[in-house]
Amino acid sequence: MSTVSMTVNGEAVCGEVESRTLLVQFLRENLGLTGTHVGCDTSQCGACVIHVNGKSVKSCTMLAIQADGADVTTIEGLANEAGLHPMQQAFMDNHGLQCGFCTPGMVMSALDIVNRNGHELDESTVRKELEGNICRCTGYHNIVKAVQAGAKAMGGS
């Protein structure tokens, strides 16, 4: 067992992990942050996407020990006392989810898209950039609309 420490959603945390403990397991099982989901074991579905040092990663394909010292943001870190993050609100307003399982990863990937591509996103950009996130309910149309609307709202805030 090794001790890892990192910043998660602005708070310093630490815990005991095996070498093989995945970052997503550490978040869910040690820290109780169950908003980050596991939808596959092949790194394809994107339900586990979080930000590590400001970049999107699949937390099922990174060891907890590799995030030692890192700055981590999960879906739980987005909303504040004033309400939902504009991207979360956009998913709600545009009916960008049905069962909701993929939604945390979708939102975290959406924020990464905005970070790299700005606030005015065309549909084809969003669709290409969401290649690593799979939704089995919606058919993606409303997710794409939500990402575009959320990006715009973030620019205005």
């Binding site: 994107g46 990663v57 699949k58 394909t61 990174m62 990937s109 990464d112 950039e129 690593g132 996130n133």
Partner: peptide, 9 residues
Amino acid sequence: IGDPAVRNR
């Protein structure tokens, strides 16, 4: 290659 999150690692 892959997708954005994979390309970051």
